Measured scan of single mutants.
Amino acid sequence: EINVTSHGEEQAKHWIELAKRMNLDVEVEIHGDKIIITIK
């Protein structure tokens, strides 16, 4: 399980695309200006 804290939408999209390509599950939480991505 990987937790990524992203401070930008572009960076977040990059991680989500990467996870989808690798067929991994992704959870995205938004806390103000921080985007927390959990890849399982």
Rank of each mutant, 00 (worst) to 15 (best):
T38C: 14
V26C: 03
T5E: 07
I35C: 06
V28Y: 02
V4F: 10
I2T: 09
G32H: 09
H14R: 09
A19G: 06
I16P: 09
K13G: 06
S6E: 07
K20L: 14
T5L: 09
N3Q: 12
L24S: 01
M22K: 03
R21D: 15
T5M: 05
T5S: 05
W15P: 07
I36L: 04
V4G: 05
I37Q: 00
I36S: 02
A12Q: 04
I2S: 08
D25H: 13
H14V: 14
E10P: 05
I37V: 03
L18R: 04
I16E: 04
G8M: 12
S6K: 07
D25W: 15
E9K: 10
I2V: 08
T38L: 07
K13V: 05
H7F: 13
N3M: 13
E10W: 13
A12D: 07
T5V: 10
A12E: 07
K13M: 06
I2K: 05
V4A: 07
L18H: 02
H14T: 08
E9S: 08
E1S: 10
E27R: 13
K13E: 03
E9C: 15
K13A: 07
K20R: 03
E10I: 09
E17M: 05
I16T: 07
V26R: 00
I39L: 06
R21K: 10
A12Y: 13
M22P: 11
L18D: 04
M22H: 07
H31P: 00
K34Y: 14
E27K: 13
V4W: 04
I39P: 00
K34F: 13
V26D: 00
V26N: 00
E29R: 09
I36H: 02
D25A: 10
L18K: 05
Q11Y: 11
R21G: 08
E17F: 14
I37K: 00
K34D: 02
D25P: 06
M22T: 03
L18A: 03
D25I: 14
I36W: 02
A12F: 13
H7S: 09
W15F: 09
V28T: 01
E17T: 07
R21N: 12
I30Y: 04
D33Y: 08
E1C: 10
K34C: 15
R21L: 15
I37W: 01
I2W: 12
D33Q: 05
W15A: 03
T5D: 04
K34S: 04
T38A: 02
I30L: 04
I16F: 08
K20I: 15
N23M: 10
I2D: 08
D33P: 02
T5G: 06
D33C: 13
I35V: 02
I36G: 01
V4L: 07
I16S: 04
S6T: 12
I2Y: 06
G8D: 12
L24W: 13
I35G: 00
N3G: 06
D25G: 03
K34W: 14
D25E: 12
A19K: 08
S6L: 14
I36E: 01
V4T: 05
T5H: 09
I30M: 02
V26I: 13
W15L: 07
D25M: 14
I30K: 02
K20D: 15
I30C: 12
H31I: 14
E9A: 11
G8Y: 12
E9R: 06
H7E: 08
G32C: 12
